[in-house]
Nucleic acid binder design. Structure first.
Length: 576
DNA sequence: CGGACAAGCTGA
DNA sequence: CAGCTTGTCCGG
């Protein structure tokens, strides 16, 4: 019996024997000990948990095997075990970390009886059955106003489906709706054993590793949402894990999104709705060009906003948190100071030069548009903005941030950070007071993430027919993100992003890893000048490793002997 | 990770 | 040289 301890710092397997009495007929312990199961072992003087990886292995010469101490629980089935191995390899992480995610939250000694599969009835809307007809992964572009439920129902018509949603709330809602149409649903991770026995499984990111007996289809809802990437090591992405899982199982995998990411499009074919359908599912987008405005005191609210505030019905204003906002604009012409190379916002260093937060490029403090040397800071926090908005609207304003809610709860005028878009379900208008913060964030996925915000806003105001509006105040009115939302055509953003990322060698046109921690210098040193990869840095104690693809990257990283000490290797970093 | 054991340091 | 700290090694 080969086992892997769940102890950080021990990344190797050990061999044990199953105590003879467990194998006696009628003893349940013998049946629970199988690959994936959780056991307890005596290791070097202490009792620790471990996963059974293999049974019937030939132990190495000259070691006396100790018996397993205890069996705790059933664990991930073999297909998930293989998926976990592949994930640990692809994202350069420890298998034990992935197996923790794949294991039941509380001990499972036996599986419940599976209830017979129920076929959800076909609804009145569009049929998505055809999307599941082939085993090749597919991206379904659904406009913001369209619900993914019909897609999920189609998935369950094939058998037990695995359905991932970006948030716990959405997962719960989908689970409830599917149950209402008669489908047997396990909500992951609570109903781990129900899924293992055979049911449609609904959950968030971690459900990518949920056991699903007789898995027939996988759906990842809103694949563009960032919560699908694990932030601890290994930094696996549930979308990519699901595509791999579907391929291994030979079942269809459908990703949905109003604005698919380049990463998804690199792995799956896209099916887009007709222009008419897509346009109908996006709201009207108003772009307010602020380059000519006076942005001094009180300049956060343009004339256009004042008129929006006058109408009936709830209005939501979105502004980024204080502190994160540090933008420079040219005083005479209003142009934003951006990096010439990667177009991120730049900050001014103590010596006056402009430095890019993303690619570390440095240039003199000159406006790229008019050559002026006069630059000014733009900054304003939510609390101040609320006071101004209250004065402007002459009625109470509720303030919503991720941390707290303040002000008048009965008000239908809200202001807050992007958290406000999660808390206010429906509104007549959503106003982005300063969208440039999003567009120019020093992350190479900033554009897609900004698009994600517009999608959220679009859902709050509803489709074109609902009459709602998304108002975007910006100094970059021609930015491809705004252009794409304005025309209800996310393809425009994809085209622009593809060009930039190809030119800069960013994913999905390369595979990246950021290496940091005390052991990083030694690790990078051992990486040396391996053929086929680039090592850049150090920048702030972090090195960037770039390979043409993930197979190469994983191969190269695994070939290096891991030096002692803390080492963080972030594959697919969201910040570079 | 954390226990075992060895080598190094200190004070009487 | 007992009694303690610090470092390195290794687990079936």
């Amino acid at each position: 019996m080969r086992v892997l301890p769940d102890v950080a710092g021990i990344d190797r397997t050990f061999d044990y024997v199953v105590p003879a009495d467990w194998d006696a007929p009628g003893d349940p312990r013998g049946a629970i000990v199988q690959p994936g199961s959780l056991v307890r072992i005596d290791l070097h003087g202490r009792r620790v948990g471990a996963w059974v990886l293999e049974v019937d292995v030939a132990p190495p010469e000259g070691v006396t095997l100790r018996p397993l101490a205890k069996v705790s629980s059933l664990g991930p089935p073999v297909d998930v075990l293989d998926l976990a191995r592949a994930t640990a390899w692809r994202w350069y992480g420890r298998l034990a970390n992935v197996l923790t995610t794949a294991s039941p939250p509380t001990a499972v000694r036996a599986l419940p009886l599976a209830r017979p599969h129920v076929v959800a009835p076909q609804g009145a809307g569009v049929s998505y059955d055809e999307a599941f007809a082939t085993a090749a992964p597919l991206v379904l572009r659904l406009p913001p106003a369209d619900d993914a439920f019909d897609v999920l129902a189609a998935a369950t018509r094939r058998g037990n489906a695995l359905i991932l949603a970006p948030s716990v709330d959405e997962a719960r809602t989908f689970a409830t709706r599917l149950r209402r149409s008669g489908v047997i649903v396990a909500l992951h991770p609570r109903d781990w054993a129900v899924g293992a026995a055979g049911a449609t499984v609904v959950g968030v990111r971690a459900a990518a590793f949920a056991p699903v007996r007789d898995l027939a289809a996988i759906v990842v809802v809103d694949e563009h949402v960032e919560t699908y990437q694990e932030e601890r090591m290994p930094t696996w992405h549930a979308r990519d894990v699901c595509i791999d899982r579907a391929r291994r199982a030979g079942v269809p995998c459908v990703l949905t999104s109003p604005a698919p990411t380049l990463d998804a499009l690199a792995l799956a074919d896209e099916r887009a709705p007709s222009r008419a359908v897509e346009r109908a599912g996006w709201p009207i987008v108003d772009v307010v060009d602020r380059r000519r405005d006076d942005v001094g005191h009180g300049g956060l609210f343009s004339e256009r906003i004042v008129s929006v505030l006058r109408g009936e019905g709830p209005v939501v204003c979105v502004l980024n948190r204080t502190g994160r906002s540090r933008l420079l604009a040219c005083a005479p012409c209003g142009e934003l100071a951006r990096c010439e190379r990667c177009h991120s916002a730049v900050t001014q260093r103590d010596d006056g030069a402009l430095a890019c937060g993303q690619c570390a490029m440095i240039r003199p403090a000159l406006c790229a548009s008019c050559g002026s040397q006069q630059l000014k800071n733009l900054r304003l926090g939510v609390t101040r903005a609320r006071e101004e908005l209250e004065a402007l609207a002459q009625r109470p304003v509720a303030e919503v941030t991720a941390e707290h809610e303040r002000g008048d709860r009965t008000s239908d005028l809200y202001i807050g950070t992007e958290a406000v878009l999660h808390q206010v379900r429906s509104a007549r208008a959503v106003v982005f007071l300063d969208f440039d913060q999003e567009l120019l964030a020093p992350r190479f996925r900033a554009g897609e993430q900004a698009m994600g915000l517009l999608v959220r806003a679009a859902r709050v105001v509803g489709g074109r027919a609902a009459g709602g509006r998304v108002v975007v105040q910006t100094r970059l009115p021609r930015h491809e993100v705004i252009d794409a939302a304005l025309h209800a055509d996310p393809g425009r953003l994809v085209a622009a992003e593809r060009e930039t990322r190809t030119a800069l060698g960013y994913p999905p046109f390369s595979a990246l890893a950021v290496v940091s921690g005390v052991a990083a210098p030694a690790f990078v040193d051992r990486l040396g000048s391996t053929a086929g990869i680039d090592v850049m840095g150090p920048n702030d104690g972090r090195w960037l490793v770039r390979a043409p693809d993930h197979a190469t990257l994983a191969e190269v990283l695994a070939a290096v002997e891991r030096p002692p000490g803390r080492l963080r290797v972030e594959v697919d970093p969201h910040r570079v």
